[in-house]
Write a protein that binds this DNA or RNA. Structure first.
Length: 271
DNA sequence: CCCAAGACCTGGCGGC
DNA sequence: TGCCGCCAGGTCTTGG
């Protein structure tokens, strides 16, 4: 569920409430997420004041005075502001409590998500340090993709889903961006020329921007920080549409498997 | 270094 | 209805 647009939608839904808030408690019901949450963490956090809520790739950064609380939503995670005292369901693993207002609740059935406390510069943390440029900044463009893809034999789809190349692009938006750019997902990344790299970078930006504007893609029960679902699923051109006609040429879309991820493309529009 | 597969988890769905 | 296998938005880790 959570690729960059969903994480950004979540960030926008929680930022106003959290900025300036003092952390009163971290209630950990299930500490065994991607990495175990230390029993000492709630004591370390008490009294910390959240200064900003930022996003890097698919990570959310709650920057406090002495450190940064990092959240990752994994495959099935979501964050919501809920009224204090609301009963916790079986997958409501962690609550961040700030004073009297709503509580930031992490819900994650598959437990691939993460909550980490990082002291010092969070961008130097091993999880963030090797990530490529943010896709929605000027640092990310066709020239960058061209330079990074020289000599690479892996498929362009796996290439753009690699956070070391560019963070935030997951399976949904990789499929969508490649359709928009007219590039077949299995093409070796190193075969792309300057023109196709330009189109690909532009398509990634456009797809992500449109998805953010729609509030993300709600599959299953994803909702943003304000509890509202996203509507980008109505604009999906290929993801989840295997066997259906291409919206551009009406050819039946092909669904295959690449690196164990479902891949959908139009064999007429994408070369 | 590069690449693909494996691993981590739970729930929902289609098929029998 | 019940069970089984397969699939799902991610990404770190492992092994070749």
């Amino acid at each position: 569920m959570p690729e960059l647009p969903e994480v950004e939608t979540t960030r926008r839904g929680i930022v106003d409430h959290l900025c300036g808030a003092e952390i009163a408690d971290l209630v950990v019901r299930v500490p065994k997420l991607r990495w175990p949450i230390s029993p000492a963490l709630p004591y370390e956090l008490r009294g910390e004041v959240i200064r900003t809520v930022e996003r890097r790739g698919k990570y959310l950064l709650l920057r406090c005075v002495r450190g940064t609380l990092l959240y990752h939503l994994g495959m099935s995670g979501s964050l919501q502001l809920v009224p204090p005292g609301r009963r916790a369901g079986p997958h409501d693993h962690v609550d961040l409590v700030t004073g009297a207002g709503p509580v930031l609740r992490l819900t994650d059935p598959r437990k691939f998500g993460a909550v980490l406390w990082v002291e010092g510069d969070p961008l130097k943390h091993p999880l963030l340090r090797d990530q490529g440029p943010e896709p929605l900044t000027a640092d990310f463009d066709g020239a960058y993709l061209l330079a990074r893809s020289r000599g690479r034999s892996r498929s362009v789809k796996a290439f753009i889903m690699d956070s070391k190349v560019v963070p935030g692009v997951g399976n949904i938006y990789a499929n969508e961006a490649l359709f928009q750019a007219g590039i077949r997902p299995s093409t070796p990344a190193g075969w792309l020329g300057a023109e196709r790299c330009d189109r690909l970078a532009a398509s990634i930006k456009e797809v992500l921007i449109r998805a953010i504007a729609a509030g993300g893609t709600s599959l299953r029960d994803f909702v943003g920080g304000d509890g509202r679902p996203g509507y980008f699923s109505q604009q999906l051109q290929v993801y989840g549409r295997g066997g259906e006609p291409c919206n551009r040429c009406r050819t039946r879309l092909v669904e295959t498997r690449q690196e164990q991820r479902s891949t959908v493309f139009c064999r007429h529009c994408q070369r």
